[in-house]
Nucleic acid binder design. Structure first.
Lengths: 171, 171
DNA sequence: TATTGTTATACTCTATAACTATA
DNA sequence: TATAGTTATAGAGTATAACAATA
């Protein structure tokens, strides 16, 4: 059982592998056969570098996402942001307040709904995000340098088909 | 700017999009061009169902990972588990204690290192994990039903090339 | 009655420093 | 001196319930 090289998974019985004989390399094949495990490990690998890089702009991952959506969708409401980014409204309040306090976004009354507030990036917020988005794109390329541009695109498309609702064929 | 279908990203200036004209659909193209964003969203989508399903076995995601590695690597130490799963030792203590209290694993003195404890799954733990691993595999297939078996395999391989250290060609 | 934004709060997950026993 | 396991604890992230203002 030791020199297994094929895709066969080890049997789930004692003695199938012995950690004391090779303490430095564990058999991780079953976990590595699971999509969720691999997706989580890969996401954490990318985001680890992402957080470092965005820290230079004073942004956490979620700050970047929120600012990016606001920049590309002027007047978006908190509720829309929550739906698009899978956030809970109470967790967005302090986040938006902090970005507003830094002068990165402004809140204007919604044109048709008196309850809502439209979120707009300020000129300063726009300038920051232009830099941040460029840095983010470059960082991701560096962090996934093992992939070609074509492979990276394939990976993104497959990931989107996992979590995005299926769309009609004629796009 | 409205009927854009190509890969061109919207300019990062006000007026590029207007949320009030299409309040139900936001422009998410920039975030969706980022690998980290897509990997995180896909991972959360899979793991959401994973947690529900594993809850029936009384296991959280991390419990499943730990038990799985122990089952396939009898005698593995806590330190090895931490390195393999990117966990911090203090966070593993209570986790292992809980699994031990449930009779799912046993801790035996390490044969060569008096400081370490070898972790072994009990018969009960083995039986539980046999069911859990089967359920996990099936759940992932269900949750990624938009992908063919071949596409799912391609996705896993691309993800592993992102987060696993590169290996020598003649593997 | 339903929804937006908000407050307060609790729960989980994760991370760090420091201790002990052994190598 | 370095490492394995542990303790205590702090911080971040995430979740729910409930409220006022508006639809």
């Amino acid at each position: 059982m030791s020199p297994v090289t094929g895709p066969t998974l080890p049997p789930l019985v004692p003695g199938a592998a012995d950690a004391s004989s090779a303490p430095e390399a564990l058999d991780m094949r079953h976990l590595q056969s699971l999509l969720g495990y691999n997706a989580r490990r890969a996401a954490l690998h990318i985001i680890e570098g992402f957080m470092q890089r965005m820290g230079e702009f004073g942004l956490r991952t979620v700050d970047f996402s929120v600012m990016s959506v606001i920049c590309h969708n002027p007047g978006v409401t908190s509720r829309q942001l929550c739906a698009a980014l899978n956030l809970r409204p109470p967790n967005l309040v302090g986040l938006v307040q902090a970005l507003h306090a830094r002068g990165l976004l402004a809140r204007q009354p919604h044109p048709t709904d008196g309850r809502a507030l439209g979120l707009h990036a300020t000129a300063q917020g726009m300038a920051l995000m232009r830099q941040a988005e460029q840095a983010a794109t470059q960082l991701e390329i560096d962090r996934s340098a093992q992939l070609s541009a074509k492979e990276r695109q394939t990976l993104i498309e497959l990931l989107q088909r996992v979590y995005l609702p299926a769309r009609k064929p004629p796009f």
